[in-house]
């Protein structure tokens, strides 16, 4: 195992690599010891430790798309982001036999098992959590349907697999040919006790949420998950007041990833500035803070008293935090 990004992670081996559509690669990850990986429920994601040149250690989150009833391996789908930090390009260079570290699964997008009808709206790579989620619902005998948007038929390999597996409950739409889904038609006059699950680009999530609200859906029946792309920024120094350590945060690495690479574990779940687990107090700063989260209130962000190390950063200088 490499040091760095994989500290505290579960060692796995890449046992299968498959390019399913332009820029999308499936990876099968099997435990190094040949036993079983931790169990999970549909909608869970794992984080993968990524070591780049120049001592850069990242962790990216990917939804699990393999069966929750077979934990002899995990399967994830990675879309290559040519403009990103380099994490997805690293994942696309992996070959069978390569070793990685992955976290235990976390579920921030679970099925609401008491629902009467489960409606999924997915776009692009957001289709991945549907595989285990629909399998769970199928076993439970629950009613479900999925509305999947793909740009072209060339991008629809995973959607076709989903419909091959779950049949007529899957409705595929090619947005480059027929435009976007009619969300109001999907959400109008649905039986009481329905739930909608949205996974896709942020514009799709915003559209479906506002359509649901306008149609009288209450928040407790609207669920969504979005993996935000980590923004790169300027390098800065992170000083930990309690331990006296000073760590360098490179431009494309988050403060949380730097802490983890140095063996310092703090609570986290979403790694996207939404769940609030990693909230940390700022003691002193000689720089601006880029608050990229949706967790802290605008007033807290304005006075720079706290920040979310999973997604937010300083724009240079030294940031002293209460750790």
């Amino acid at each position: 195992m490499n040091a760095g990004s994989s500290v505290g992670l579960i060692p796995v081996i890449v046992t299968q690599v498959e390019d399913v559509s332009p820029g999308v690669r499936l990876l099968r990850l099997s435990p190094e010891d040949g036993h079983y990986l931790p169990g999970f429920s549909g909608g869970s994601h794992i984080t993968v430790g990524i070591d780049l040149d120049g001592d850069i250690h990242l962790r990216n989150a990917y939804s699990l798309m393999s069966s929750p009833y077979d934990t002899s391996h995990y399967e994830i789908a990675v879309r290559r982001m040519d403009s990103g930090r380099g994490g997805s390009r690293f994942m696309h260079r992996l070959r069978e036999g390569d070793r990685l570290g992955v976290s235990s699964p976390v579920n921030l997008f679970p099925i609401q098992i008491h629902g009467k009808l489960h409606i999924f709206v997915a776009g692009g790579i957001g289709i991945t959590p549907l595989f285990p989620q629909l399998e769970e619902l199928e076993r439970a005998g629950a009613a479900f349907e999925a509305h999947v948007s793909c740009r072209t038929s060339e991008d629809a390999t995973l959607a076709h697999r989903l419909s091959g597996r779950f049949g007529s409950n899957i409705n595929i739409r090619y947005t480059s040919e027929t435009g976007r889904q009619d969300f109001a038609a999907i959400l109008s006059r649905r039986p009481l006790g329905s739930h909608v699950y949205i996974c896709g680009p942020s514009a799709m999530i915003a559209d479906v949420r506002s359509t649901a609200r306008a149609l009288g859906w209450s928040n407790s029946h609207v669920h969504y998950e979005q993996f935000v792309e980590q923004k790169t920024g300027k390098a800065f120094d992170l000083k930990l007041a309690r331990s006296g350590l000073t760590l360098r945060v490179p431009a494309q690495v988050s403060p949380l990833e730097v802490l983890e690479a140095n063996g310092i574990s703090i609570p986290y779940l979403c790694r996207g500035g939404a769940c609030g687990q990693c909230e940390t107090r700022i003691l002193q700063s000689d720089c601006g803070i880029e608050h990229n989260d949706v967790w802290l209130s605008e007033s807290v962000k304005a006075c720079n008293s706290h920040f979310m190390p999973c997604i937010s950063r300083a724009d240079g200088g030294v940031l002293v935090i209460d750790l």
């Binding site: 609401q112 008491h114 629902g115 009467k116 009481l192 006790g193 739930h195 209450s218 928040n219 407790s220 029946h221």
Partner: peptide, 10 residues
């Protein structure tokens, strides 16, 4: 109400 999964916001 619970049979129809009605929550506190409904």
């Amino acid at each position: 109400a619970r049979q129809f999964d009605l929550n506190a916001d409904e």
